[in-house]
């Protein structure tokens, strides 16, 4: 018997593809956001509200992953932006190769902001880099405020936590302060926004967050310092009212 030293990362292939994707997003000035949550926390609902806020000329696209069915894509296509369903056929997460393949049949040249809705799962998706600029974790108030402690990996890797379904807060024993404390115990730098797609509360803060990130990544005259500044800027934790007047998109273009 002979011993061969390998020291090979099992996911090195995924990391390689993700690095390739990240580089190509950077070159094209695309902001890619990876939405992760337990099943049913409201990823598709949030994307529906978000797409609904964009003017039709906006360069937005969505890749949405599910184990089966393309019902999420069908929900999202109604807003007129390019949407592609990735059905994983049993796999509990998206990987970089699925993204690369999906982008082959996607008008990526016309996209500045790409949302990826990951498969509903609070554990596995965080192990797979998709080349995104940021992972965003959604935690709905119906799930319980202890989730960041139970699934620390995802909260550790996320840059932003969205506490969703805020309208249901009166009906459940979810403690916003405790959820934040738990999340920040895992990740002290985590940014946090509370929102509800049912009432529109907090969607303004979410739009502003996206806008800041777009500004930081789309405009290449921005230096590293500004990038870091944008990353560190904290949205106010205080829930905001809906700031969407008819005909005016809630999410404005940062780059014209």
């Amino acid at each position: 018997m002979k011993r061969v030293e390998l020291e090979q990362k099992v996911l090195s292939e995924n990391d390689k593809i993700a690095a390739r994707l990240r580089e190509s997003f950077r070159e094209r000035g695309i902001l890619c956001l990876n939405l992760i949550s337990a099943p049913g926390s409201g990823k598709t609902a949030l994307l529906e509200s978000t797409l609904n806020g964009f003017a039709s000329h906006e360069a937005v696209g969505v890749l949405t992953g599910d184990i089966q069915t393309d019902s999420d894509a069908a929900r999202l296509r109604r807003y007129g932006f390019p949407v592609k369903q990735i059905t994983t056929g049993g796999t509990c997460h998206l990987n970089a190769s699925m993204i690369e393949n999906a982008l082959r049949e996607f008008p990526i040249g016309k996209i500045e902001l790409l949302f990826i809705e990951n498969v509903g799962n609070l554990v596995c998706p965080s192990s797979y880099d998709l080349g995104e600029a940021a992972k965003i974790v959604l935690l709905s108030v119906t799930e319980g405020d202890e989730k960041p402690l139970k699934y620390p990996g995802t909260f550790f890797k996320a840059r932003l936590m969205l506490v969703t379904k805020l309208d249901l807060l009166p009906h459940v024993s979810f403690d916003l302060g405790r959820a934040e404390a738990n999340a920040r115990a895992v990740n002290p730098e985590l940014e946090i926004i509370h929102l509800s797609c049912a009432t529109g509360e907090g969607l303004g803060a979410w739009s502003e967050w996206i806008e800041r990130r777009r500004h930081a990544c789309g405009n290449r005259s921005f230096g590293a310092e500004t990038l870091a500044g944008a990353a560190n800027a904290r949205p106010t934790a205080a829930p905001e009212g809906i700031d969407r007047s008819p005909g005016k998109p809630a999410i404005k273009t940062a780059i014209s």
């Binding site: 018997m1 002979k2 011993r3 061969v4 030293e5 390998l6 020291e7 090979q8 990362k9 099992v10 996911l11 192990s127 402690l149 620390p152 990996g153 550790f156 115990a185 895992v186 990740n187 002290p188 730098e189």
Partner: peptide
């Protein structure tokens, strides 16, 4: 991920390792 620094009690820390998933070696027939 929930631990704080034993020296200064700060809970903000980078992860240097512990999330590995690696094939370290193979033993093969001659």
């Amino acid at each position: 991920l929930l631990s704080a620094c034993p020296r200064c009690a700060c809970s903000s820390a980078d992860l240097l390792g512990g999330d590995e998933l690696e094939i370290t070696y193979l033993e093969v027939e001659d």
